[in-house]
Design a protein around this nucleic acid. Sequence first.
DNA 1: CCTGTAAATGTTATAATATTTCAAACTTTG
DNA 2: CAAAGTTTGAAATATTATAACATTTACAGG
Lengths: 163, 163
Amino acid sequence: MSARAIPYRPHNHDACVSLALTDARAICQRRNARLTPIRERVLELIWQSHKPLGAYDVLAQLSSDGHNAAPPTVYRALDFLQQHGLVHRIASLNAFIGCTHAGENHSGMFLICRACGNVLELAAPAVSTEVCKAASKEGFRAEDTTLEVAGLCPRCQAEPDHD
Amino acid sequence: MSARAIPYRPHNHDACVSLALTDARAICQRRNARLTPIRERVLELIWQSHKPLGAYDVLAQLSSDGHNAAPPTVYRALDFLQQHGLVHRIASLNAFIGCTHAGENHSGMFLICRACGNVLELAAPAVSTEVCKAASKEGFRAEDTTLEVAGLCPRCQAEPDHD
DNA sequence: CCTGTAAATGTTATAATATTTCAAACTTTG
DNA sequence: CAAAGTTTGAAATATTATAACATTTACAGG
């Protein structure tokens, strides 16, 4: 998996999308998982920007594709994509975002800009370490970590309302 | 604010509740905030256990009190309690839990047992430190951190289905 | 005590998010 | 091909949250 663009900075986003799709195909093949047309399309829609997309936003776009989909279609696709680590759910926003570390074994940390809406996913191993330490100090067996940081990205600290 | 019981272990929970209410009254007085009967009752309901309670669970209990409440009543009370740091929202569960560090300046970390449902709130300053470090390394100004760890509490690692 | 003002609550309706259920179509495998 | 399992379609409904506006309550200043 190659280097990634930084959401907050302008970049050729088509490259992000096609990289994500290529990776996804490879990952699914390796895992014998079926990246069906619907699933692939949902992944592509999720990747249309670095802003999290709600399930109903995805649904609306599927509809404007001409695809007559109902909510379960979208949620099922999203479940599949999550299970295979291709998208993440941002709990604090009830929305979904493409995973920039697909295939890697990771538990991400998300930096969510409240001004422009872009989200950066980080690996932050030092954070994970401390989280595990804190948990095991309490005898707690950590299985799944939700770590979402809302704030202001570098660009929006300077000037507001970037896209 | 005095020492707290550990949710996972049996304890005199009435003491938790009255401690929480006493603290809340003191905190609101200090801040010139009005802990009205509804707000206090909602806080008490949230504190009825160490398991997060959904807004509609609170609503149902208000109704069985004989109080004919609608959703906004509950959400408003919860907003107030959150603003004053008396309850926390657990984003990954869409539910609310009493704050065990009310009055202290903190950004909590939550250990959520997927078996018994109890939640322990930790201060974990080392984690906060690493989170801030990771964020500022990206030039990101962190304002609000959601940190929720799902897993198994000590008791449920041994035997399942504690209450 | 009145009264103006702000804060809090009541009330109705609706928006936004997510799941259940059962049926039909498609894929894979024997 | 047939059986079995997986995926998708479709309708209904559940769950969570907010908008908008009316009414009531608290309380500070006159």
